[in-house]
């Protein structure tokens, strides 16, 4: 399979998107906060935005080359584009939407389990149904690249999990270069083989979701991946560990080496909570106050003043935790990763 090759510079209002990236027959997720230039990357690939210079090619096909003055029109690029909010034609039925670019609808409608909606108008559909129609429409012309702009953003939280699993299976089955744009690292990690973190139009880090979680390149990537980032000053301690005196007060112990200004990265799911400091192997016990509790299915996000923990709702009920309660947050020294500032 021939890769999608991107190496271009696209000026936006306040910064330039500068991207060099090869996407094989895989799902690649571009993650970044809103306004980081994610959608502009997709628009450039589809031919809807024109880079100032660079190259966009798929295998032997050159879609854009500023030096050779090649700029293939959007209608000739064979790109399947699932737009944010889906951009379904409101005046056409589901079937007419899917066959707008030619091809037949029945097999795709069957595959996406929306054949019963063929005669419905987009305005009558739920968010999940509209997403399926948008995907069917994008696939109807037999595209060579699939672009998905925030495909999960318009879905309500309780259908999100199942829709994500189905989209994951579909993307594997298609085996096309698929570029997915999202502001949600969880969506990216669940759907993509590789993830690229985009900030102000530049890639901060590229890797598998596990790579990015395990060794984030900088605090920005760590925060985007959902980590607590705590800054302080690191120094070697007598027991062979690194102690980080946090600006906020407590000292955190980490197994990794570090010195000077340092950020401590701790994932919420590595933090456990207790009423009293437990007598366990974890080295870090921080006494803190609960600010808020946010349920997420069978887990809950517990925001403390210093950091955020993620625990099961079962534990939450057993400990009868409430906002305002004093708790002890514990995590192991091996779960505290260090990012030394240079």
């Amino acid at each position: 399979m021939v890769p999608l090759r991107l190496d271009f510079s696209l000026p936006l209002r306040t910064f330039d998107v500068e991207l060099a990236l090869d996407v094989e027959a895989e799902t690649f997720a571009l993650v970044g906060p809103s306004g980081s230039g994610k959608t502009s990357v997709l628009r450039a690939i589809a031919g809807l935005a024109k880079p100032a210079r660079g190259l966009i090619s798929l295998g032997e096909c050159i879609w854009f080359d500023s030096e050779r003055r090649v700029d293939v029109r959007p209608e000739d690029r064979f790109v399947g584009y699932v737009f944010q909010e889906y951009a379904l034609f409101p005046h056409l039925t589901v079937e007419q939407n899917v066959t707008f670019g030619g091809g037949r609808a029945d097999r795709l409608l069957w595959r996406l389990r929306i054949e019963h909606l063929a005669k419905a108008k987009p305005g009558e559909l739920s968010g999940g149904e509209r997403q399926r129609v948008a995907i069917a429409r994008a696939l109807a012309r037999g595209p060579r690249v699939l672009l998905l702009d925030e495909p999960m953003a318009a879905l309500d939280p309780h259908t999100r999990g199942s829709v994500r699993a189905e989209l994951h299976d579909l993307l594997r089955e298609l085996a096309l270069p698929a570029l997915l744009v999202t502001h949600d690292f969880e969506d990216a990690a669940a759907l993509a083989d590789r993830v690229g973190v985009l900030s102000d139009g530049k890639l901060r880090q590229v890797g598998t979701p596990a790579d990015l979680l395990g060794s984030p390149a900088d605090p920005f990537v760590a925060r985007l991946a959902g980590a607590n980032v705590l800054s302080g000053v690191a120094a070697r301690t007598a027991n062979g560990l690194t102690g980080v005196l946090l600006d906020a007060g407590p000292t955190i112990f980490a197994a990794e080496e570090g010195s000077g200004r340092t950020d401590v990265v701790v994932y919420p799911w590595d933090v456990s909570l207790a009423r009293e400091a437990p007598d366990d192997s974890a080295l870090n016990h921080v006494r803190d106050e609960i600010v808020s509790l946010t349920p997420l299915g069978n887990r809950a996000r517990v925001r403390l003043k210093l950091l955020t923990a993620e625990v099961t709702t079962a534990s939450l009920e057993r400990l009868e935790l409430q906002p305002g309660d004093q708790v002890v947050a514990s995590f192991k020294a091996t779960q505290a990763r260090l990012l030394t500032r240079t």
Partner: peptide, 20 residues
């Protein structure tokens, strides 16, 4: 975005005008 969507679905500008 509807006009852009039509372009990515293979519609020429004339077809985008007439059909969308």
């Amino acid at each position: 975005t509807l006009l852009d969507a039509a372009r990515t679905l293979g519609a020429t500008p004339a077809r985008v005008f007439a059909r969308v």
